[in-house]
Amino acid sequence: MAARASGQRLEVIARTLLAIVGAYAAASLVAATLARVLPGDRAEAALAGTIVSFAVFPAIVMWVFGARRVLPVLVSLVIGCALLAALTYWSITTGGRA
């Protein structure tokens, strides 16, 4: 009983951490990637990406807490973030910043 309770508490902590860190990381990377890939003026693209990222954050928080198991969410988040990070990094190194 106690073991189950502490296991549950651990899972809540894990999900909370993943929700906050994961959602912010993903939202930031969405903002950065959109800023790079959206066509047109660079300031415009940066602003558009930033606005969109505020909708990404709560969506991921709800996903993290709503999913039955945490591990698949963690894995998908890490892979997704890594892909976005790689794309942004490649785009900045080849295209440069203003």
Binding site: A35, R36, T50, S91
Partner: peptide, 26 residues
Amino acid sequence: VTLASMYMPWGIAANFANDDDYFKSA
């Protein structure tokens, strides 16, 4: 959105080496 560039500076950081350039441009 009112404080967008403070809460989420990474879109700007991806396109501009410093914030001032962004604000001047936008």
